[in-house]
Design a protein around this nucleic acid. Structure first.
Lengths: 227, 227
DNA sequence: TGGAACACTATAGTATTACTATTGTTAAAA
DNA sequence: TTTTAACAATAGTAATACTATAGTGTTCCA
């Protein structure tokens, strides 16, 4: 995506961090190398200590930005969803056909992504790998309800609501628009994961995002078709 | 489900454990209370030490059955999938209509479950909660490929393959039977989870498994319908 | 009947993790 | 100029995920 707006910034809800990582260079390093290191090591083996070493600082500094590695994860995932929403709004503005807008939404959810030059310290391709492999862990915890009350999942919910609204526009009688959207969003992740690691669970070939898009588009449009 | 076969036993592949927990009372206690404790604490807070305390033994004993808490998780999930497969095979035998068999499969995946009296030390209702909340963590790790080579996910793959075969029977031209089945299986889990914790992401009401079944059945049959 | 073999208990120890706390330095804001 | 803030440096804690080893009691079978 070409740089469309020079001064746009993806923001994440205040509650997710202790100090805004966008507000300083150290903070931006935490985000940038946090993404790379989680991708390298996986969330389990990733620690603030290792991240601190890599960016030449100490754990204490990182803890002033994020309460825990869990909230760092939540931050990164929220950033990702906000970024997708920004791409969606941009790509669907001035498009009158709801069907067309839904197709674009599914295209974006299927995850064909180039690095976005607008956000220099975020490697979106790597971030997407993290979202695919780790995002479920952000909510599959005993703390979900508390986290949800804090608003940790608002970005995801907002994006889903927006896409569900398009479905309601196309067919107001379809009974499960929200379930369908969350199914597509999650399915996109693990179909990518399965294609890479457990290929017998999918018919999508590794790297062929267009097959995934076709599978999901077909699924959605058949589901919501008026009888 | 009434006890149909007195001596049936759900077995899990040897590679998953060091010593078969079915082979001794301690082993069965590990399974029984392992399930209850993971459900209570969540996988993150669950430790072998806590489990050992609860069943009046020590960590060392548990380590003789399972290499790590990760393999215990894999064991429990494999057991669950094997149990579902057993229920599926039973419920679909002698039913000639592939459509009917597929409906039964979706019903079973949707997770309406009563405790199965055949397996006394396993509380299937609680085990299902674990599968819903924790099963993704069994494969979303840096060790997936190694685990997969060890055969840790064979139970899941076998069940999916079996259901995909029914789809192929109904419509051999449908291009994504495996993806559709894994999507339905995974979707069933987090739609239940969302209905309990993030209800705005779903239209299924907490506890209403029949809505989930309707959503998934509708989705699948429309997807595979011949044009 | 004796003696391995085995299942389990008891205890100890290790490296690492996920933090918290404290003190000191530097550089910019009031 | 004083204050404040951001960060560095160091230390410390309770818990985790193991590993190791020695000892006890029961069973098997020669």
């Amino acid at each position: 995506m070409k740089s469309l707006l020079a001064n746009i910034k993806i923001t994440v809800d205040e509650k997710v961090y202790l100090k805004d990582p966008e507000s300083s260079e150290k903070g931006q390093q935490i985000i940038q190398h946090g993404i790379l290191l989680i991708d390298e090591l996986g969330l389990e083996a990733f620690t603030f200590k290792k991240l601190a070493e890599r960016i030449g600082t100490t754990e204490a500094t990182i803890y002033r930005y994020f309460e825990s590695k869990h909230t760092l994860l939540v931050y990164l995932i929220s950033w990702y969803w906000n970024w997708l929403e920004y791409k969606l709004v941009f790509a669907t503005s001035n498009i009158p056909s709801a069907e067309e807008r839904l197709k674009i939404a599914i295209h974006i959810l299927s995850g064909e992504i180039e690095n976005d030059l607008d956000f220099a310290h975020v490697d979106e391709v790597v971030l997407q790998r993290i979202v695919v492999a780790e995002s479920a862990k952000a909510y599959l915890t005993k703390g979900v309800d508390a986290d949800n009350q804090e608003g940790f999942f608002l970005s995801y919910k907002r994006l889903c609501r927006r896409i569900a609204a398009i479905i309601r526009e196309i067919n107001p009688d379809y009974k499960y628009p929200d379930s369908l959207v969350s199914t597509v969003a999650e399915s996109a992740h693990y179909q990518i994961f399965f294609s890479q690691h457990l290929p017998s669970l999918t018919n999508i070939n590794n790297g062929k995002q267009n097959q995934l898009e076709e599978f999901l588009t077909d699924l959605v449009f058949k589901a919501i078709e008026k009888q």
